[in-house]
């Protein structure tokens, strides 16, 4: 550990720093696969960092490092003491510390992705940690999930419904999911993906890219 001498904290309003994107959702819905896809697709054009929140030690971080989609040193893992949602919502200190460590080491960054540990439908990111958030569901959890709602489904800036390739096998009706999601989400967007069939996750990456562009215009480093 020891002393870090470059102790610069960013302004709470976010000027002069990267967009922070939270990726949350239930266990097994494809969060880590989506993060890997975003790194693969956006990595050539953007300076990225990733923070993972694992339930057990550093499994997701290790998966991403092995996937070779990003310099392994740009991936940090946070341990969450049995409570993945606490670390992204109620007590975000360890995640903020990891995000700022990445910005100190590799900054200026364009985008820092914070992947939550797999949790339930009530998990959302604090606005003190994530500027934008994606909630990831998969069709094999059943096509009733969007109707059940919950803060992740209803309030996330983007809802991703993954594993559409499995829909025929589990009897999930994508039309029902789309209609139910629109009913609880209003104007907020929903994207259907099959990261297995389309490893670039092009539509999601394009949405994220637009968010980064908009953020950089409104949160440029103030002239000093």
């Amino acid at each position: 550990m020891g002393a870090r001498h470059d102790d610069h904290h960013h302004a709470p309003d976010g000027h002069g720093r990267a967009l922070r994107l939270g990726v949350g959702g239930p266990v097994g819905s494809g969060k880590t696969a989506l993060v890997a896809a975003l790194c693969r697709t956006l990595g050539p054009d953007l300076s990225l960092g990733v923070v993972t929140n694992d339930i057990y030690t550093t499994e997701d971080a290790d998966f991403l490092r092995r996937a070779g989609v990003l310099d392994p040193e740009r991936i940090l893992a946070v341990e969450t003491g049995c409570c993945p949602h606490t670390a992204i919502r109620d007590d975000i200190a360890a995640n903020l510390d990891a995000v700022e460590t990445l910005e100190d080491r590799f900054g200026p960054l364009d985008l820092v992705i914070v992947e939550s540990g797999g949790d339930n439908l009530t998990a959302t990111f604090s606005r003190g940690l994530a500027d934008r958030q994606i909630f990831v569901l998969d069709v094999s959890g059943g096509d009733k999930v969007p109707r059940k709602g919950g803060p992740g489904v209803t309030t996330a800036d983007l809802l991703v419904i993954n594993k559409t390739d499995l829909a025929p096998m589990v009897g999930a009706d994508l039309g029902v999911m789309d209609r139910d999601a629109a009913a609880v989400r209003g104007e907020r967007p929903v994207l259907f993906t099959s990261i297995r069939e389309q490893p670039s996750a092009g539509a999601v990456a394009s949405w994220v890219s637009d968010q980064v562009t908009a953020w950089s215009h409104t949160h440029a480093t103030p002239a000093s």
Binding site: T80, G81, C83, T86, A87, D90, D91, I92, A93, D97
Partner: peptide, 12 residues
């Protein structure tokens, strides 16, 4: 213990 200073992730 709700002070948001990361203590929840340490078991001592």
């Amino acid at each position: 213990s709700r002070l948001p200073a990361g203590g929840h992730a340490h078991s001592g």
